[in-house]
Design a protein around this nucleic acid. Structure first.
Lengths: 261, 261
DNA sequence: GATGGCGGAG
DNA sequence: CTCCGCCATC
């Protein structure tokens, strides 16, 4: 089973890139974030024509998540389901696919430390921990994979210069602590199990010239698994090619492979 | 001598198209309208790299004219030079090239009949007649070519359905009369001398689906010459290929060939 | 429908 | 730097 994640920064702008990537990489599931499209305008027809099923929830201009898969998922749900779904639906989609719960999140970025957007991000991570507890139950008894743009770089090696960047909305103690509380539900970092070295990134700011070649990236896209899934994890890698393409997203694809049982 | 004209609808968006077209068609001079770029941002370097000299005058967002040529023009001037040059400079450029005065204009479109923009268009044509008289002197004694987007479809055959369109800011009696006054200075219609048949157009509205294939165009881009130049005219044609290209302008190239003397 | 400008976001 | 939405122009 191959599960990939990609913050596409507009699914419409990246449609050709995504279709080519799907054809080349043949994942079972591709999780997309920042689709930036209302549901009526999601390019479902073009994806269907290429043989990909899509579930998606978007809004005008920002956010938006989707799950592409070869077959229709067994179950689909959107949002944190804690009473504020209008807000959280374009940030969380969960499918059951091949007997696995796959959760795709686009965690709020948080804008700046002193803003209420940052407080919202912290609260969102707390709500997410509650979501996993409430919706998935015991981690030890669940086959689940969590992927997405988590907007958290938890370790020093997740950024190119931790001291220089610290404190940042994606790399500061409050966010790391809140993220750890989510992990404590029972998530294991599958990305780092296979890519433990420093300098492996998944996002490079458009505004930083030559960021890729200068190694000025961030590891904020994640692949995590419950204990049973962590055991089944066979590999995880980052596809740099897409980030170097003609009209790239500022993120790139992360691909994970899992034993089918 | 080959002189071409093209309303490019943003020289930056059309740069690759223009470079490819120049390489294929090897004009001596290419007149551009609606470059839509401030002078500092004109892609002069990329053109120079391909061996093309450029003179240009633009403004923010709208209008803007340029002349591309293999060699530096002998003389260059911008605007109607009647005291309102700030306005008219991004609409008129004149060069002397190979012993010929070549005038490139982007005549105001005129928005709608009841607007002051339409009155401005009529006044602009009057000012243009005065310009030719004042700046070029006697037509019979002048080797001059006038090209550009004139926003005038003077004859019924210049539009796909004259009765349906009439009266339109580009196809109504007032504009035709005012245009005739400009022609009366001494201009001969070289485009129509070589392309007299109906259904030959240079502009197709983006908003009309399948406009090209359905023949729903306008002939509003012109090539005219003084009597001596009309005599030297060897041919005129419209290049449909560019309008059918991937990311086209709504206009296409008009190419004229002239005996070198 | 396809430009550009602007302001907001990342 | 590159998206979005909105507005204006043609």
């Amino acid at each position: 089973m191959r599960i990939a994640t990609f913050n596409c920064n507009s699914v419409r702008k990246r449609l050709d890139l995504i279709l080519a990537w799907l054809a080349d990489n043949q994942p079972d599931v591709l999780a997309l974030q920042e689709t930036k499209v209302m549901d009526d305008d999601f390019p479902a027809a073009a994806l269907a024509e290429a043989g990909w099923h899509a579930v998606y929830r978007g809004q005008k201009g920002y956010n938006g998540v989707a799950m592409l898969s070869r077959m229709r998922p067994q179950l689909v749900s959107f949002g944190l389901q804690d009473g504020d779904d209008g807000e959280s639906e374009p940030r969380l989609v969960r499918i059951r696919y091949g007997g696995i719960d796959i959760i795709n999140t686009y965690v709020p970025q948080g804008r700046a430390l002193e803003t209420e957007q940052f407080q919202f991000k912290l609260a969102w991570l707390k709500r997410l921990r509650a979501y996993f507890e409430r919706e998935l139950g015991e981690a030890a008894a669940t086959d689940a994979v969590w992927v997405g743009d988590l907007n958290v770089a938890p370790e020093a090696k997740d950024v190119h210069d931790s001291k220089k960047i610290w404190p940042h909305v994606c790399h500061c103690q409050e966010v790391i602590d809140r993220f750890q509380e989510v992990l404590d539900w029972g998530w294991g970092d599958v990305f780092r199990r296979f890519l433990p070295e420093a300098g492996v990134y998944t996002f490079w700011d458009y505004r930083v010239r030559g960021a890729i070649d200068r190694g000025l990236g961030w590891r904020i896209d994640h692949v995590l698994g419950t204990p049973s899934m962590a055991e089944r994890a066979k590999g995880c890698r980052v596809d740099m090619q897409a980030r170097r393409s003609e009209a790239p997203s500022d993120h790139t694809f992360v691909i994970s492979d899992w034993a089918t049982d």
